[in-house]
């Protein structure tokens, strides 16, 4: 770990100010579950670490007229305990699937959304694009855990956030503050992620000095159902091979609106319009769910060694759809 300054602001404004310095070569520390490991591996080497956990306004879940404002510091434990978040089943399921109380106590939603890729080339110091001598290491190397969608560009890692698919399926937005003192923007979460085209790009739209302060969720209606299906090789702490989250609006057994989002299959969370459009105005059956799964991966372009992930992603979508309407049976 390289040395850095440390600061612990009390307010959002103070945090933004602290993050601007050093040309923005600063890092936001929340639960530490990703950042401290990155620091130890020298993958992130900021000149200042800003611990935002003292900022009251970034904690807690509040109901407003338009929906919920969820502080970025909301931990997985908070997600599990919050009566306001309880109806957002697909979110709660993700928090519950983190089978480690240490992560549940520390990990925050904001941190999860900004979790850097678990790509082993990235984690071994080859950068997000894993380029060496102008060549992609992923393309010809061991890409068993890499992208099967959206991988035609230089980025072939998969987005590591476990909550993003569910949040995007709910149409969540993120409130971003900084880098200028008063600057605030609210962006649909699906536009938050980018697939970097060059080595100096990150995997989100966050500019140096910016951070997520809140996540916005629309108000839930009785007709809304949702589910997340994560395919985890291990029961214990592990990260998914593929994830699917669906949010449906079901009236009289007919799906009126649908969003289907896949995770861990592309450099960004993957919104599948193909899958969603198949669901609309239909009654969910096993056959339909199958077709939805197939549609979600119909444009998959697996790499040399990850064809199997297409099957897994397809299954995840199918099962998430069935799970949302309470029809899922079986599966490990």
């Amino acid at each position: 770990m390289k040395n850095f300054e440390f600061a612990s602001p009390q307010t959002e404004a103070e945090a933004v100010g602290l993050l601007q310095d050093h040309g923005g070569r600063t890092a936001v520390l929340a639960g530490g579950t990703d950042l401290v490991g990155l620091l130890q591996a020298d993958l992130v080497a900021p000149e200042r670490v800003v611990d935002v956990r003292q900022i009251q306004s970034m904690s807690g879940v509040r109901r407003e007229a338009d929906g919920l404002w969820v502080g970025a510091l909301t931990t997985l434990d908070d997600v599990l305990a919050s009566p306001l978040l309880k109806p957002y089943l697909s979110l709660v399921q993700v928090a519950d699937a983190h089978h480690a109380i240490q992560i549940q106590s520390s990990g925050t939603l904001g941190g999860d959304l900004c979790h850097l890729p678990n790509c082993w080339y990235y984690r071994n110091g080859y950068g997000l694009l894993a380029m060496k001598d102008g060549e992609s290491l992923v393309e010809t190397g061991d890409n068993r855990y890499h992208a099967i969608l959206g991988n035609s560009g230089p980025a072939k890692f998969v987005n590591a956030s476990r909550f993003a698919p569910a949040l995007i399926a709910w149409g969540a937005k993120v409130r971003i503050i900084g880098p200028a003192p008063e600057q605030v923007e609210v962006v649909p979460l699906e536009y938050f992620y980018i697939s970097p085209k060059s080595a100096n790009q990150g995997n989100t739209i966050l500019k140096p000095g910016q951070l997520i302060s809140h996540i916005w969720l629309p108000a839930i209606e009785p007709t809304h159902v949702s589910a997340t299906y994560e395919v985890l090789q291990m029961e214990g702490l592990d990260w998914p091979l593929a994830t699917a989250s669906v949010t449906l609006d079901v009236e009289g057994g007919i799906v009126r609106a649908a969003r289907v989002v896949l995770g861990h299959v592309a450099p960004t969370p993957w919104v599948s319009q193909e899958a969603a459009s198949l669901l609309r105005n239909q009654m969910v059956t096993e056959d339909l769910a199958n077709a939805v799964g197939a549609a979600a991966v119909s444009k998959a372009t697996p790499l040399s060694n990850n064809e199997y992930k297409v099957q897994i992603a397809k299954t995840a979508v199918k099962r998430a759809v069935l799970k949302a309407v309470g029809q899922l049976e079986g599966g490990l």
């Binding site: 407003e64 007229a65 338009d66 929906g67 709910w170 149409g171 937005k173 609210v186 649909p188 916005w216 629309p218 108000a219 839930i220 209606e221 809304h224 949010t247 609006d249 009126r256 609106a257 969003r259």
Partner: peptide
């Protein structure tokens, strides 16, 4: 539906 529109943000 509202979960797709995000009105009032």
């Amino acid at each position: 539906r509202s979960f797709l529109k995000g009105s009032g943000v």
